[in-house]
Amino acid sequence: MTPDHAKPTTGAEVDCKAALESLFEFLDGELDGSLEERLKAHVHECRPCFERADFERRFLAAVQAARTEERCPKALRERVLSTLRAEGLGA
C-alpha cells in the first residue's frame, strides 16, 4: 500500500515539495515505513516544513477536539432503542 504520487525514488531524500505533498498522509500515519522515516527526517531538519507540519498537526487536533460538539439527540437515541427493543433487543 504505497501512495502512487509524489513518491520520491526509494532511498532518496525527501525535498520540501515532496514533503508538503505527503504531509497529511504523514500526519495521518498513512505512509509506508520507509517514506515515513524519510519524511520525518526532512521535517525535523527543515524549519519551514517543521512549522507547516506543526500547524497542520495542531489544526487536526483542534478538529478532532470539536468531535464532541455534536452528539446524537437524546430523543433519537430513545427512539432507536425502543425500535430495537420491539425487535427483541434486551427482551
Binding site: 500547524f55 489544526f59 477536539a65
Partner: peptide, 19 residues
C-alpha cells in the same frame, strides 16, 4: 490562512466555530 489560524488553534472554545 495560517497567519489567521495560528494564534487561535489552541483555544479551547474553538469547537463551535469548527463545527
Amino acid at each position: 490562512v495560517r497567519g489567521g489560524l495560528d494564534p487561535i488553534l489552541d483555544r479551547t472554545d474553538l469547537g463551535p466555530a469548527i463545527s
